[in-house]
Nucleic acid binder design. Structure first.
Lengths: 222, 222
DNA sequence: GTAATCCTTACGGAAACCCGTAAAGCGCCA
DNA sequence: TGGCGCTTTACGGGTTTCCGTAAGGATTAC
């Protein structure tokens, strides 16, 4: 079993249960942090001391409070860790169940397992830890209904997200076009952007922009 | 201390910690349900058996799965319970931190305490349970930044929420007007509705309807 | 009973959207 | 080089939003 595990989770009510699982699995060294920044620090320190962690279990969203932080989310934490210890095994344990977000975790951040917090997630988490230790096959919570190889949502790329983000911030078409030109994102003609928005509206069955943004918010795209 | 407590919480990772707290407080009977429907059933059963619960600790949002349910949220659960056992003490334990939603919990559903899930929420929860038992003063998590007596958000009423809901579903002004006429909600002239939307836009500093809905989603109003 | 005030509704013009069509730009290939 | 297909951009007209002004109706004040 793993020898040294780091848990990054802000909610104390949840970290208690996670640590319990690790204790049951007889992990000798279990550390727990409530902020992503702390997590990165511990990883770096352990590396410097030649006693690196061999597993990270992290949440995605962290509450913000008075404290100033550099890393705001589990995504950012993993990204930062990948730069210093890319071979670290990583399990994400989060409430998030939107396929779009989870896919990027596997594809772009190279996580080893995703467990969605739910009614039987502790068992799932235990299984994910064991499987991750034993081989290396990617693990996805069984209660997630989407097919991992489904192409449908992967089509929505960062370009679309950028448009949706700006729309949700009250930008009008012309302002978006200008913004894209400044950032040299193409295509950036008002007409092209309009067409892309139209595709999104068809895809999400939205009647108009207001409806589209409401749906995008529900899907966690923005 | 309380003699019989019901915990309604779908995430197993959290309920473990909540039950632990109750055990530490030496509550003799602790029951736990993962669905709101089950919760209402248990409350009714206990009443019929003349062994009613004296405290409810509930989450607000419950994940939906394959199971068909009548009650979808903690709000609905409390509302249903109030009809059968209005004197039951109620503590809400949730991640929600939007003042609008929490205020209605106190004012309309008569909960006794609100504890927001956070980095030290287990301690807060323990305190809330003890205070609720000892007197009856309303308890609000200390880390919630808003002032409970602040009038600002209370101004937004169900009429505004209705408008925002329909907007977020892609309705145009005229359709909203028609819908309101059907439901005999007044005022229902397109002009009046338009004016109300305008007030909301000023209040939330939104540039346009799209922006407004994005903000409303962030605030958890819809 | 009349005036003042507030709320609701109506109206109109400018801006932004929605949606179809057509032109311009660009790579590819013969 | 010229033609083909694809993407990007431009244009135009209808619809909806956006925003100010004003009329009609109800309630309150005196």
């Amino acid at each position: 079993m793993f020898k040294k595990v780091l848990v990054a989770e802000d909610l104390d009510s949840i970290s208690i249960a996670v640590v319990q699982v690790l204790e049951e699995l007889q992990v000798p060294v279990i550390h727990h942090v409530k902020y992503c920044d702390e997590g990165l620090l511990k990883i770096k320190k352990a590396l410097a001391d030649k006693e690196p962690y061999d597993l990270l279990i992290t949440d995605l969203s962290f509450k913000s409070d008075h404290r100033k932080v550099n890393l705001n989310s589990g995504d950012e934490l993993v990204e930062a860790i990948n730069k210093v210890q890319p071979n670290l095994k990583k399990i994400v344990f989060s409430i998030e169940d939107k396929s779009y977000r989870i896919k990027t975790l596997f594809n772009e951040l190279g996580i080893n397992a995703y467990v969605s917090k739910g009614r039987n997630s502790i068992t799932e988490l235990r299984n994910a830890i064991e499987s991750t230790f034993n081989n290396g096959e990617k693990i996805l919570s069984s209660d997630l209904s989407f097919n991992f190889n489904d192409k449908s949502l992967i089509e929505i790329e960062s370009y679309d997200i950028s448009i949706l983000k700006l729309l949700s911030q009250g930008y009008i078409l012309e302002s978006i076009s200008k913004e894209f030109k400044d950032l040299s994102i193409t295509p950036n003609g008002t007409s092209s952007i309009e067409k892309r928005i139209n595709k999104l509206k068809i895809y999400f069955k939205a009647n108009n922009n207001v409806h589209l943004i409401a749906i995008a918010k529900d899907f966690g795209l923005v």
